[in-house]
Nucleic acid binder design. Structure first.
Length: 479
RNA sequence: GGCGCUAUCGUCUAAGGGUUAGGACAGGGCCCUCUCAAGGCUCAAAUCGGGGUUCGAAUCCCCGUAGCGCUACCA
């Protein structure tokens, strides 16, 4: 069975590039019947924070793509140190006593740094003696650089890869403080956790040669590797919080009102496509269509809407979210809509009980012109509250000749009628308009303005029944 | 500097030897219509440059150029 892992380090918030890596791992696992392992790579004790761990977990949970196992790398430290010791014992790694201050290899000109002179060749006797004497050292992997050969592998995305041993430096396994480096910890864990497919960002493509060397020296079977193209900001530089702010953070998409499925759909289309022109896809459709081999090799730019009033994100992401918001089964949307209405402070307990049918109907009617969950709070106040303002354009509709008196007359008719439905309201409005020699649209738009304070919204007749008879009559009389 | 990866409309992408180079977002226009959306139709918009190979190249090869990655006792 395939086993994939997502291995974030808790040194910052969950990045959308990380979220996409997680998504592609998840899709690969789900489409091949594999398991998803979440491994928190917290070996850099100096930079780890509790807050960023929480942010990563929050973000991942929000995506609603559950993982099957969870591990903390820091708790596996003993295994990492043991592995380094074993490599030293068999000569595959060696101690490097070069002081840290002398290490910065000057690479700005001339030859690339490969190893510190003399340290590879230190006899084990001298090495053991200096270590026993307490001299600090780092453990490095001994790359077989005397061989003219190299490491080759077939990347699932980037195809054939090859690197000469002579171009791989003797990378560190253990730091002088005794803690494992990323390369060591990650490879030991990938091996011991039985990871079969390592799917990660392209920034690790050249690290893979080191990992293969390590994995094989450790006696593990080599997993398959697949590297994903990177996500770049609108300016073409690697997406980062510093440069791109909320655009790069998963939780800001959540806070902006994205549905998990809308956001996931957007991410899925960055560097991959189903090849059949479909864009709006449910998670199950993504699982069916996903093929790791058809992931692109080109980096993708994440756009930002530039027009004033736009959400500060890729307009396509907003559009895609709107597709899901409008087209998903209403009942699936309801929990999210409830959240949005609660956030706006308009939630009443009866929406969950006696008025549940009404709530469902209102959300269904309202959602067709919304794109983000936060649009409920922005544009639907009059459906939930009586204290709404009157927009200028709506006021203009009320101020047209004869509209206010006609609306007050309409209030009486509706109050006096026994029927109250979209159709009966439409009859009342149209016949009143005809009697008064007015264009029906004048009355219709006036009624919408009176009932909602807005010039835009659902069909005016629908608005009546959503607002309810008593409130509708009251709002019409108040004009 | 060294090693490597990549290159189609503004953006996300389809087409891996033969297509009027397709779709989507964003932009323009039209239709629908009680408004705004949605939806439908439509316009504008691309194969980085130069050499090859071939009857034929966006597609294969080479050279440039550009972008990105790696080159840490960070992950």
């Amino acid at each position: 069975m395939n086993r994939v892992r997502f291995a974030p380090s808790p040194t910052g918030f969950l990045h959308i590039g990380g979220a996409r890596t997680y998504l592609f791992n998840w899709l690969f696992a789900r489409s091949t019947g594999g398991r998803v392992i979440l491994r928190i790579d917290d070996t850099d004790t100096g930079r780890n924070t509790e807050e960023s761990l929480r942010s990563i977990l929050d973000g991942l949970r929000w995506l609603d793509l559950p993982w099957d196992e969870q591990h903390f790398q820091s708790r596996r430290r003993a295994a990492h140190v043991r592995a380094a010791g074993a490599l030293v014992a068999k000569g595959a790694a060696y101690r490097d006593f070069t002081p840290e201050t002398e290490s910065p290899a000057d690479r700005s000109d001339g030859e690339p740094w490969l190893c510190n002179p003399g340290m590879r060749e230190l006899g084990s006797g001298e090495s053991d003696r200096r270590a026993a004497a307490g001299e600090p050292f780092v453990v490095r992997f001994r790359v077989p650089r005397d061989s003219p050969k190299g490491v080759a592998f077939r990347d699932l995305v980037f195809r054939k890869q090859f690197r000469k041993f002579a171009d791989i430096e003797d990378f560190a396994l253990l730091r002088s403080n005794g803690l494992p480096t990323y390369h060591l910890a990650s490879s030991v864990d990938d091996g011991e956790l039985g990871i079969t497919h390592v799917i990660r960002g392209q920034d690790h493509l050249t690290n893979t040669f080191k990992h293969i060397l390590l994995l094989e020296a450790l006696g593990f079977e080599r997993p398959a590797f697949g590297h994903l193209p990177l996500l770049l900001g609108p300016d073409g530089s690697k997406l980062s919080k510093r440069r791109h702010g909320p655009l790069a953070s998963v939780t800001s998409y959540r806070d902006m009102g994205f549905l998990p499925v809308g956001f996931v759909n957007y991410l899925s289309l960055l560097g991959w496509s189903p090849k059949d022109n479909r864009e709006s896809l449910a998670v199950s459709e993504l699982v069916d269509a996903f093929r790791l081999e058809q992931v692109l090799r080109t980096n993708a730019l994440v756009q930002v809407g530039e027009r004033p009033g736009d959400a500060p994100v890729d307009p396509k992401a907003v559009w895609l979210n709107g597709q899901h918001l409008r087209n998903m089964p209403v009942d699936d949307l309801l929990p999210f809509a409830e959240g949005a209405v609660r956030d706006a402070g308009w939630w009443l307990e009866e929406y969950g009980s006696s008025h549940r049918a009404w709530f469902r109907e209102a959300i269904d009617a309202l959602r067709s012109r919304l794109s983000l969950l936060t649009d409920f709070a922005l544009r639907c106040r009059a459906y939930f509250r009586d204290d709404f303002g009157m927009e200028a354009k709506a006021l203009g509709n009320l101020d047209r000749d004869g509209v206010r008196p006609a609306l007050r007359a309409l209030a009486d008719r509706i109050a006096g009628a026994s029927a109250f439905s979209d159709a009966s309201v439409e009859d009342a409005v149209r016949s009143l308009a005809a009697e008064r020699g007015m264009k029906a649209s004048l009355l219709i738009n006036g009624a919408r303005a009176a009932l909602t304070g807005q010039s835009v919204g659902p069909s005016a007749f629908r608005v009546f029944t959503l607002v309810g008879k008593a409130r509708a009559v009251q709002r019409l009389r108040a004009v």
